[in-house]
Design a protein around this nucleic acid. Structure first.
Length: 111
DNA sequence: CCGCTGACCCTAG
DNA sequence: ACTAGGGCCAGCG
């Protein structure tokens, strides 16, 4: 854990954590930001994913906001894709929001 | 070089 | 219970 490559961009650390999100689980930007040491920089998490949006190796669809809403769906190939991917993984929805009480998990548990 | 924007979250009135 | 504002870090014009 220590001796981590601090030289690595924050953006890469986010991707590493997001890639560790297991199947059928969802986390929030805030949890990821806290895991990286950034308490209130959840915005940067979105920025990092934005750069990685083109990378299909990263399940960015499993990352939602505190409200359980799919904020970044617009940045996907198609806005419907995010919902389809989550439903495909067994994630349930509450209207247009993800059922957090059933699938929300702290990003720290993936570390 | 300086300033703005951004897939957010929290505290206060 | 709701609305408004501030804060945070990094990339880009």
């Amino acid at each position: 854990m220590e001796k981590q490559k601090d030289k690595k961009d924050f953006f890469l650390r986010v991707l590493e954590l997001v890639k560790k999100i297991p199947y059928g689980y969802v986390t929030t930007y805030g949890s990821i930001a806290q895991c990286l040491g950034l308490k209130s920089s959840a915005r940067m998490v979105g920025w990092a994913l934005n750069s990685a949006a083109a990378d299909y190796s990263i399940p960015c669809h499993r990352v939602v906001n505190r409200n359980g809403e799919l904020t970044g769906k617009q940045y996907f190939a198609t806005p419907e894709m995010m919902r389809e991917l989550l439903e495909s993984e067994g994630i349930t929805f509450k209207g247009d929001q993800v059922n957090m009480q059933s699938h929300f998990t702290d990003a720290a548990l993936f570390l």
